[in-house]
C-alpha cells in the first residue's frame, strides 16, 4: 500500500531544547564539526488505495490542522514514498 510522508519541524526562530541537548551530546564526538541539531517529526501515513490529488489535499489539511501546530511548527514536506 502506498505511503505518504509528512515532515514537520519546529520553527527556525524557536528554541529547540531537545535539539540543543542532542547537539551538546554529539559535540562530545568528532572535532567540533557539528554545531547545531534540530529535531523534527516524520509521519508515515499508509493509504488504502490510490493517492489521488484529492487525498493529498486532505492530507495537506490534516498536516496543517492536526500533525503540526503552526504557532510552533512548519510542515516542510508532504510527498508520496517511492
Amino acid at each position: 500500500m502506498p505511503k505518504v510522508i509528512v515532515e514537520v519541524m519546529p520553527k527556525e526562530v524557536l528554541l529547540d531544547p531537545a535539539g540543543k541537548a542532542t547537539a551538546r551530546a554529539l559535540q562530545r564526538f568528532g572535532d567540533g564539526e557539528i554545531t547545531d541539531v534540530r529535531i523534527g517529526k516524520r509521519f508515515e501515513i499508509t493509504i488504502d488505495g490510490e493517492v489521488t490529488p484529492k487525498l493529498l489535499e486532505h492530507i495537506n489539511e490534516v498536516a496543517k490542522d492536526v500533525l503540526s501546530n503552526d504557532v510552533i511548527e512548519d510542515v516542510i514536506s508532504i510527498r508520496v514514498a517511492d
Partner: peptide, 10 residues
Amino acid sequence: AGGLIRNDHG
C-alpha cells in the same frame, strides 16, 4: 492564543 513548548532549560 500562542503555543507552549519545552522548558528552555530542558
